[in-house]
Design a protein around this nucleic acid. Sequence first.
RNA 1: CGGGAUGUAGCGUAGCUUGGUAUCGCGUCUGCUUUGGGAGCAGAAGGCCGCAGGUUCAAAUCCUGUCAUCCCGACCA
Length: 477
Amino acid sequence: METNKNEAITSRDIDFAQWYTDVCRKAELMDYSSVKGFIIYRPYGYAIWEQIQNYLNQRFKSIGVQNVYMPLVIPESLFNKEKEHVEGFAPETLIATIGGKSKIDDPLIIRPTSEVLFCEHYAKIISSHRDLPKLYNQWCSVVRWEKTTRPFLRGSEFLWQEGHTIFATEEEARDNALGVLDIYDDLGKDLLAIPFVKGLKTDKERFAGARETYSIEALMHDGKALQSGTTHYFGTGFAEAFGIAFQGKDNILRHPHQASWGVSTRLIGSIIMVHGDDNGLVLPPHVAPIQIAIIPIQQNKDGILTKAEDIRQRLEKAGFRVIVDQSDRTPGWKYAEYEMKGVPLRLEIGPRDLEKGQVVIARRVDGKKEIVPDGEIEREVGRLLAEAHEEMYRKAQDFLKSHIVPVNSVAELKRVVDQGGYAKMMWCGSRECEDKVKDLTMATARCMPQGDQHHFGEKCAVCGAKAEKVVYFAKAY
RNA sequence: CGGGAUGUAGCGUAGCUUGGUAUCGCGUCUGCUUUGGGAGCAGAAGGCCGCAGGUUCAAAUCCUGUCAUCCCGACCA
């Protein structure tokens, strides 16, 4: 069941939202299901997620994280234990009230996040300082009954990882939250070719139940920000609510400190909207499920397919993800198809190439073609993929940097965010000023960035009081 | 959850005002010829007209409800 590729996708500049939807469907990343907000992750889209999982599993394990799996459902009575947390999620929970044919007395919440399940478990298994720390993570899906949904960006169900860690001291827990934030930042640099702004969330934007929330924020091509991952320091609030305590070496009973952190399939949305162009998806080489698509030209002629297959095997042996498209579509059709799907490199092999002992390699990121001698294919593919990653990261970083603009008034801020990008503002830290900006401009405080807290003014750009923080505002998804 | 739009074959659509059993293009299948930027010819298959009620001799068409998708707001990864 192929969809029709002949119709051009909507141009980004004409209708960015429509372009996004077109790419999601025509690149075969997902399909809609019959229930609002629940999407089908098709093989090509899921394979991108698997690359992200592989990277993070490796990084998580290097800091001592263990994978676990918690139940899908949470009894409502358990969920209600931490007050702020409940209030944060209550409006968007899906609840099961019937089991078999009988009514369930304590209704079961389909997890919107699993804090309370981890806490309940931790309360049982932690009693001594010897039981700490615990660094658990789970890969699962969660359900939040969303009003507006968009593929990958906001779904009623989405896939994610949620890490829930617990430590003896505040310092360790906060270090964990910050350390994983750095891992997420590396994920952007190493895998996704996406530069993030990372920093501390304002109190208003903080996660329900957390003491501190940190986030990585990506800037989409249309100038809107997308929160792409969060980490939280919880303090001892959950531990107190759930009765988690440990006896220290000093024989005193204490509550441990917790952190949690997660990224979701929303990252796929980030990849699409940061790198994509009017020809479709552009995948960063390290997440691309297919890194090289080999297109045989006049494939019925002697030796062409044999050569293509030989090259495929050589590249696979060298560690690349590669396919040969032997279907009987025309070469032009295949070019367009793999461009739509964002495959980083296309390798053409035809009679002329065979004769001269060479191939043609075209890069998705800029369309440039190179002629490569047969004997150098493995090496050149490695170089071209590395260059493509660098090029994509550099382009995204240039775009990000040129869209962070310091402002000294709400009027200036509005101009910046209306045009697209981050307005960088000095802020007194009050909720009133934050709310006022949102009311007047539709922009929200994305974060107070790490590494960009150099004060460039004395006064809050909203109220004129003494400025405490540098904060970035943007319109967000 | 408010405002607007739309659901007809895998995709895009005509038909709806004025009820009579669904049009066209692409895709799919078969065969031959093709192949360096979305191939050509010939033949074929494919439809609970989103779903559920109602009106009627008769409903894609009229009425009611419902579900989903898209866009714009309010709320959130």
